[in-house]
Amino acid sequence: MTVVTDPARPVAVPEASGTAPPRRKRGTFGFNSLSPTEKVVRYLLLVFVLLITIGPFLWQLSTSLKGSGEDIYTRIPRLLPSQPTLSHYGEVADTIPVWDYMRNSLQVAVLVVGGNIIGSSLAGFALSRLEFRFRRIVLGLFLATLVLPGEVTIISQYVTVRELGLANTLFGVALPGMIGALNVLLMYNAFRSLPVEVDQAAVVDGANVWQRFIHIGLPSVRGTLSVVAIFAFIGAWDDFLWPLIVLTDPDKYTLTVGLQYLSGTFSNDPRLIAAGTMIAFIPIVIVFATLQRFFFKGVEEGAVKG
């Protein structure tokens, strides 16, 4: 589903080769120390890139706060509003039911996150820690779907959802992405890094499969699990094409579809659209900023592989 193949998600290349070579501690070498000039150059470059990546967001934020009487088209652009106001945010809510859209997006995202955490950790555990017939075939099936871009099957996926009676429902938006093949493989990879001996010792102690899953498996894959959760959330929140196809009723729109509706149908006022985009953007930034250390930790654990 589109949630799975979303470009915002790190890519795992599931390989049989197992764990990555041990990583060296950084910052412990004299080699690492930089000359003052190099430091200054590096910071200048960092700030330059920062302006390019963050600048457009700041400009949009500034536009959303500029008063209606303020000339936003001036030849000399002003970053700081001269008549700052929050009124456009209220105006967005008067134009489209933006808070309902936010609740809809949240509903979809929660379903997708929950489904992926449960479904992919269970399957990943079974595929990596338990022996059973056809295990390799099942694994191969999950791998095979990775080469298929989600957009290729989006039409027949819509047909499936429609036949289930879920066209034009939020559940229909969430359903196909609730267990992503990529996430199953990520969890499979994560569980594999746990030594088999630990499992065998637990078996000797009389632990059953469920106990091994809860007490041994899950605690050792927290990093990858949080990466799966973060990206399931971001993917569901940001998704546009799939909800656009499934939802026909403006009452049921998610935020992204609602924003497009706002800019396409109702408004030519850049301040209003800017306020709308900020309403969709700020929550996801907060989520990411709060959880970024788990994300970067997951990256180091190898949830992102190159």
Binding site: P7, A8, V49, L50, T53, I54, P56, F57, W59, Q60, T63, I234, W237, D238, D239, F240, L255, T256, L259, Q260, S263, P270, I273, A274, G276, T277, A280, F281, I284, V285, F288, A289, Q292
Partner: peptide, 20 residues
């Protein structure tokens, strides 16, 4: 984290920003 922000934002959001 800051360099990663455009990735985290929805394509719809960033496209509307660029449109402006």
């Amino acid at each position: 984290t800051a360099f990663y922000t455009p990735v985290v934002a929805s394509a719809v959001v960033v496209a509307l920003i660029w449109q402006w």
